[in-house]
């Protein structure tokens, strides 16, 4: 019972800790660029400031526009609770690997549809690009998941995470291919360079930021939290899948924290060293990811045949 309560507490902490990740990435990035930068807690300050302000709605907008921030935040909150932290999860929300994919699609649908409500060109251009990326990123994410699932022969996230701790899994070429592919998905879903520049203020170059243009106040706070939750989801999944975890409870959480911090540093390093790609080149990169997954699949089939 106590273990259960602890697991739920840890799981819920994801909702609170999520904004820390973009903050940490920004701080490390600033240091890498020789600036002092903001505190890792800056996203929390932004959220508090936005939470105190009124929302705005463009003329003629409907409930689709007003519901989108809450709906996408709710979908992401659900996804954060489904993805296991430290090999346990809240049971009743489900634990299948396809559920977070569906919830991400729900968030994407609601924000992109909301971009049509005011009908502004900037938001729609960005929403179209985001959806275009997803056409290539979603099969890539699924294939990466399938390759990870080879270790446990199950698509249950808890079992997948548990099996990822097995040293035997690390010797599978398929697992390494999955890691590479998953890295690409992390960059797409979190909207980081070289795919998308989260710091841009030029509307024409926006992807993930574009549909947020019209929002203000609490709506914008929810959408910014959603973006942070997407970081949490992807980075936590990456660490739990590809970093072997020690079993006892405090140690695996510590490993997870260190792993996520390390990945944040890696993302900051990638973002500092690589320029943003041309948008039309991104599918080529993601297609390469699909090819990597195919190689992983072939290696697994070959291993089974041998």
């Amino acid at each position: 019972m106590r273990g259960n309560v602890l697991a739920i507490a840890v799981q819920l902490s994801g909702l609170v800790l999520a904004p820390l990740l973009p903050g940490v990435i920004q701080t490390i990035k600033a240091r890498l660029q020789g600036r002092v930068g903001t505190s890792p807690l800056q996203p929390y300050r932004d959220l508090r400031r936005l939470w105190g302000k009124r929302s705005v709605a463009p003329y003629d907008s409907t409930y689709v526009y007003r519901l989108a921030p809450s709906l996408s935040a709710a979908a992401l909150a659900c996804a954060v609770l489904v993805v296991p932290i430290g090999a346990s999860t809240i049971g009743w929300l489900g634990s299948d690997m396809l559920v977070p994919i569906g919830l991400l699609a729900l968030a994407r649908f609601s924000t992109a549809a909301a971009a049509w409500d005011p009908g502004g060109g900037f938001s729609l251009m960005a929403a179209g690009r985001d959806l275009m990326f997803s056409v290539f990123a979603e099969p890539l994410l699924l294939l990466a998941f399938v390759l990870v699932a080879i270790g446990s022969h199950s698509t249950d996230l808890v079992q997948m995470v548990a099996a990822a701790g097995d040293p035997h899994v690390a010797t599978l070429p398929a697992h390494w291919c999955a890691a590479l592919a998953f890295g690409l998905v992390v960059l797409v879903e979190t909207g980081r360079q070289p795919i998308d520049n989260p710091d841009t203020h030029l509307e024409l170059t926006m992807v993930h930021e574009g549909p947020l243009l019209e929002y203000a106040g609490r709506d914008l706070a929810m959408l910014q939290w959603t973006a942070a939750a997407r970081h949490w989801l992807m980075l936590v999944l990456a660490v739990t899948f590809f970093v072997p975890m020690p079993a006892p409870v405090p140690w695996n959480l510590l490993t997870l924290a260190l792993g996520v911090a390390g990945l944040c540093a890696l993302v900051a390093l990638v973002e500092t060293s690589l320029a943003k790609m041309r948008i039309l080149r991104v599918p080529v990169l993601l297609g390469a990811g699909v090819a990597i997954c195919m190689i992983g699949l072939a290696s697994w089939i070959a291993q089974g045949a041998l």
Partner: peptide, 28 residues
């Protein structure tokens, strides 16, 4: 899943209302 998403959305919508009326604005 449906119950959680609907409840969570409803709570957030209520929170949104509490911040005051939504200001109409032109699009950017």
């Amino acid at each position: 899943l449906a119950a959680f998403v609907v409840l969570c959305t409803a709570v957030l919508q209520l929170a949104r209302r509490r911040a005051g009326t939504t200001a109409p604005s032109p699009m950017w």
